[in-house]
Design a protein around this nucleic acid. Structure first.
Lengths: 244, 244
DNA sequence: GTGATACATATCATCCTACAACTTGCTTCG
DNA sequence: CGAAGCAAGTTGTAGGATGATATGTATCAC
């Protein structure tokens, strides 16, 4: 808890601000791939910061594969395909439309992963998942802890696939959604919705226990559509799902 | 082309090496979440570099949400759930087992996305996809350009879903796989396999033209399993797929 | 005139020192 | 005994200096 408060209260450092500025300039297309960035000195003068700050900002963009710096020449914008990292702009997620897209991605990832987990889970996995489920419906149901338990439930399922990349991706997407929901959440009196939410999780868990991939996938899909609705995001039922 | 050579030839800078070292120490669990990192001065002495270099390394880890630095106190390792970016270690991908996992993730993402694309694509999308397909089978078939066209084909399908997050994720995963394959590729005389590969792509394209989500999904799934086999990765057919 | 070598310049890479801002613990004084 | 303040440690920022690398230019030999 202390960690979370600290994380939220973290001041925006100068390198972070410079990096964000350049990043947006690249994303928006003002700096096209292949274009050369201003020199470090020019940037430091432009932003009124030391060259050290500019370098830390550039180091970050470079680590992400957004730009490439070459000694003696300058720094150049790279093509989006060359990105070495995935990073999601949380500001953009305030737009419901983007939120909807992210839920769609989550649905794709988690539905099939639930099927995989149903086929591969062992008893240890089931115990971890059950523990998270109990926390959700337990005494923490009205607290922030309930949401933590919810996410933990999903992460443990992802872990049960035995695929660390799947685990990483699902954890990431879920966390992005959590942060986005966090501030918009107070508006919804979701106390009466908790029962529905827990019920959906129970159905997923039962399918995992039964080792039924198809049922797990269906239950997960239904849950994510429901979860999206509960936070005000209307998830379009894709034809792919309806076709099954 | 010049860019690619330059990108490959990019020397490993000192900050990058320090960041990689700390990153591995965190991933391996030697530094647990909540643990405090050595001070910048200690690190600079330990690695024999200036404090500036250490700061650039830390700036990168901080941007990824791996650590959190607090003025006057120190830097602390954050929990994996708080990561702000997804980054894949290319060294780890030299292990075939990890490669297999990544292909599995790719299969999940692309199969359903192909279905979405089949439902949502318009003529402009189809034209872009067709152009990439033609490049694959065209005069570039034996060149590096063939692989570029292959990836472009997949990216354009991802774009046709109309979901920018899906596009980002698929582009990222595909690019990781491409880089990993790149050096191991010379061993395979895949000239005779090109026909098979192109054929699989044609079937995907035809399903998209027909607007048939189920067919597109099946064709994409078959293709990715085939592509994995062709680079020596035996992708386990999940029960989820067999159940359909 | 042409070619090659050497130099000057521009830029990033790294290092160094200094100071500011912030936190913590201890000390000193009332 | 309590509280204010001081001191030390740590990260944040600033600024300059030097090394490494790429590019263009000028000079000189032929």
């Amino acid at each position: 808890m202390k960690q979370r408060l600290a994380a939220i209260g973290t001041v925006e450092t100068l390198p972070h601000r410079v990096a964000a500025f350049l990043s947006r300039e690249i994303e928006s297309g003002e700096l096209n791939p292949g274009a050369r960035l201003p020199t470090e000195q020019e940037l430091s003068e432009k932003f009124g910061v030391s060259r050290n700050v500019v370098r830390e900002a550039i180091a970050q963009l470079r680590a992400d594969g957004m730009i490439e710096a070459r000694q003696g020449i300058g720094a150049f914008v790279l093509a989006p395909e060359q990105r070495a990292a995935i990073r999601i702009d949380r500001e953009a997620l305030k737009d419901t439309h983007n939120m909807e897209r992210l839920f769609e991605l989550r649905c794709i990832l988690e539905a099939e992963s639930a099927a995989l987990a149903a086929a591969r889970r062992n008893q240890v996995h089931l115990d971890s998942i059950k523990a998270a489920l109990d926390r959700m419906g337990g005494e923490e149901r009205w607290e922030e802890g309930s949401i933590d338990a919810d996410l933990l439930f999903h992460r443990e399922i992802a872990r049960a696939t035995g695929n660390s990349y799947i685990h990483t991706f699902i954890s990431f997407v879920c966390e992005q959604i959590r942060h986005s929901i966090h501030y918009a959440r107070m508006t919804n009196p979701l106390h009466d919705l908790v029962e529905i939410n827990v019920g959906e999780h129970v159905r997923i868990y039962e399918a995992l226990v039964a080792g039924d991939p198809a049922a797990a996938e269906a239950a997960m899909r239904a849950h994510i559509v429901g979860a999206a609705n509960r936070v005000g995001v209307k998830l379009p039922l894709s034809k792919a799902n309806g076709a099954k």
